[in-house]
Amino acid sequence: MKFGIVVNEGPYQHQASDSAYLFAKAAIEKGHEVWRVFFYHDGVNNASRLTEPPQDDRHIVNRWAKLAEEHKVDLVVCVAAALRRGIKEENLAQGFRISGLGQLVESGIKCDRLVTFGD
């Protein structure tokens, strides 16, 4: 089955991104495809290259990037939400790309299920 995921909250502040990541990982382990993860609202902060958590904590940004690289997951950051919050190409983490809201709608159209994680 083809899954789409939406993440609406930033990393570390809210559990949404962690829940979404663990859901995505479990879906892939069960043989499903995670086609795209769309980051919206404060969720765009999950794509900041400047993120530096303490060494003994999980690195939420790099964890998403690694999952994307290993399993061909398309990580898309909403351009309008990103610009509002100061996320641009110059500070975008590897593995993510910035695009329009149409990519979210496309997830809804193309995926068998779209699961949202937020506040």
């Binding site: 089955m1 899954f3 663990l22 859901f23 990982k25 479990a26 879906a27 382990e29 069960k30 499903h32 068998d112 299920r113 779209l114 699961v115 949202t116 994680f117 937020g118």
Partner: peptide, 16 residues
């Protein structure tokens, strides 16, 4: 989390 995935897959649609 695996059970979470199954619940989503086995439901016709879902809503957060």
């Amino acid at each position: 989390y695996g059970g979470f995935v199954e619940l989503v897959a086995n439901s016709k649609n879902c809503q957060s």
